[in-house]
Design a protein around this nucleic acid. Structure first.
Lengths: 112, 112
DNA sequence: CGGTATCCTTAGGGATACTG
DNA sequence: CAGTATCCCTAAGGATACCG
């Protein structure tokens, strides 16, 4: 992702948001923050995404070094994804955002 | 914006992010967090957006009750936009996101 | 199982001109 | 000044089938 002069000058938050925006990225991060997942697990936990799009989102998160990918040798193939340090440091901020949503956005309720 | 069952169940943060996602919304919030702005001011501060899109983004922020719009009578017309309480409470979270970007994202530097 | 390859659809955004 | 009205176009996402 290229950042324009204007983005960088005005609003580093925008640059951050760009890295986690995308229809499924926050949900992926949410699930990975509970621990590593193999591709198929993650895919089962997030229904309604096509495999292709799921992969795209993961690749973008990798490119932003928010998520890391591990290939375990053997058959059948096993690949796991987990949050990087950078990704983990994002988690508390997302939790605050979550809290903000819970207090301000109608119809958003916590499901422990 | 409708939220799916899945969004609400899994990730209130996603719902929050939806309200501030959009190509220009973070930048608009950034500028408004420094105080109210009339439309033309804001538009001058954010070059490269078309007036139409700028309006759309503002309308969406209004719909999410992040931004409020005040019409001052007189001629020429004067309309100002400012952050609502909800919007102001978002500011510190965005600042943390900003800090996170500054420490983790290459090429993002602070311009006091 | 994890991943490509194809093809298709749409919403988001951009350019420009016009109006009260 | 603030706001519509048109028209256009591309990137993001979706469906489906196939591969090692």
């Amino acid at each position: 992702m290229r950042h324009t002069y204007h983005d960088i000058e005005c609003c580093a938050a925008k640059v951050a948001l760009d890295q986690i925006s995308g229809k499924w990225k926050p949900i992926i991060i949410f699930h990975l923050s509970a621990g590593p997942r193999r591709f198929s697990e993650l895919w089962r936990e997030i229904p309604r995404v096509s495999k292709k799009v799921m992969l795209e989102q993961l690749r973008q998160l990798e490119a932003a070094t928010l998520v890391e990918r591990t290939v375990h040798n053997g058959f059948p193939p096993e690949v796991t994804y987990h949050l990087s340090g950078k990704g983990q440091q994002l988690a508390p901020i997302l939790q605050q955002l979550e809290q903000w949503a819970l207090t301000h956005i109608e119809g958003v309720v916590q499901i422990s």
